[in-house]
Write a protein that binds this DNA or RNA. Structure first.
Lengths: 226, 226
DNA sequence: CTCCTTCGAGAGCAGCGCTCTCTTTCGTGT
DNA sequence: ACACGAAAGAGAGCGCTGCTCTCGAAGGAG
């Protein structure tokens, strides 16, 4: 088979798959994941519903593809924001706000990746993409640590083995105290964003951006940033 | 109409509605909210699917009833735990752990009330029930404040109006600094629980209970508890 | 030019939420 | 005691869903 020809076929395939994902993303953004229907996507693309299964073996596989794309989209945004030429503390806040902004701009996609987990969506591809944004934040902490901008938070003895393993896994140059505190901070950051996205700040907090910035700045202190 | 007779009818109605909710809860616990089907519930109860609509006008109304029940169940559990005769700091941790334990015991119900919000589920009944558990925690903070066990956390000037309004709404006796910090802590607590429930601690944190206790104890400090 | 893989279309299945209609049940006012 | 009317259950059916199967039309590979 000719390489160019095969590339033509493969490219067409990739393009159609991308069009399906785009249309699915559009419906996801407007109606939410529950209302995303393969038939509607196919109809909007002018093709039979059954033809869709040539590209995604099931609705769940399509959703998984959207999950990975969403993780990468958020990750890319965070990576771009991380490049700001300011101190670690301000960069921590900037990246956190970027996560919040992305979530507010793509609420249904955020819910898809950080909301109620869909069973059986724990492939390795998903896991790698999911780590991307967290790695950006830990990069900020690393920079702070290198410039002596971190004081180690307390760590119960019982948590030290876990913390050392985590540090070895993805932040070998950071003290386990910081890595453990970071994981907690990451979970709490998602809690803040999810809270706002769920509308639980309605009638409660008006100045949500300031509230968020203040909260994540205290979170930075909890991780050890000064 | 005779009172006793009417009560008999009304009681039967309530009992059937409760049976429907119980069966729905059972299916919710085993299969998750997506797989909860009115037809299956009706079949399990030996009645026609259409008869179910005499009790709940739609699947969404049934889910809303389950949401309110779940909020009250969690709230009751928290209230019971809150009665422990120990200092505020330990009680804060105990209540937080109770929330976590309830979530681990009823993951799908927890996801139903604190996961991705289902659109149009913001009735006043829901809001009242949803506040119940939070009010338990704020009661702990109140006790701490009364026994001079609280140092006011920092509060940006821009957040003061919000904080004062929140304090006036549900904690008039507490300083706005504490109330504002509490709302953030509540969101972050749900973040920690949601993180564990989503399986994001897998291969990361082994000692989850200790990790959680340490995190919420630091959260208590962030609210001002000493 | 033929073969064989790939792709699209259509019919169809089982399930879903929900509505409508018909029948039965049962408490109530006369 | 009897007829009336509200309430409850049953069943058929509508339009939708994800998904499978089969068949015909392309389009590179030999």
């Amino acid at each position: 088979m000719s390489n160019a020809a095969q590339c033509a076929r493969a490219r067409a395939r990739i393009e159609v798959a991308a069009a399906i994902k785009d249309e699915a993303r559009k419906q996801l953004a407007t109606e939410g994941v529950a209302k995303l229907s393969l038939r509607a996507v196919a109809h909007e693309l002018g093709m039979a519903a059954s033809a869709l299964y040539r590209y995604f073996p099931s609705r769940d596989h399509l959703l998984t593809a959207l999950v990975i794309d969403a993780h990468n989209s958020l990750g890319e945004t965070a990576e771009a924001a991380q490049a700001a030429d300011v101190g670690p503390m301000r960069r921590w806040i900037i990246v956190c706000e970027t996560v919040r902004d992305w979530a507010l701009a793509h609420p249904h996609e955020y819910a898809l990746i950080f909301g109620t987990p869909r069973p059986g969506n724990t492939g390795p591809d998903t896991t790698i993409a999911a780590a991307r944004t967290g790695l950006v934040l830990i990069g900020v902490v690393r920079d702070a640590y290198r410039s002596r901008g971190v004081v180690e938070p307390p760590l119960p003895a019982e948590l030290r083995p876990d913390a050392e393993r985590m540090a070895a896994d993805f932040a070998a140059d950071l003290p386990p105290e910081v890595v453990s505190a970071f994981v907690a901070a990451w979970a709490q950051l998602l809690g803040l964003v999810g809270f706002e996205l769920s509308g639980r700040f309605n009638l409660l907090v008006e100045e949500r951006e300031t509230f968020f910035r203040h909260a994540v700045s205290r979170l930075a202190h909890a991780v050890g940033l000064v």
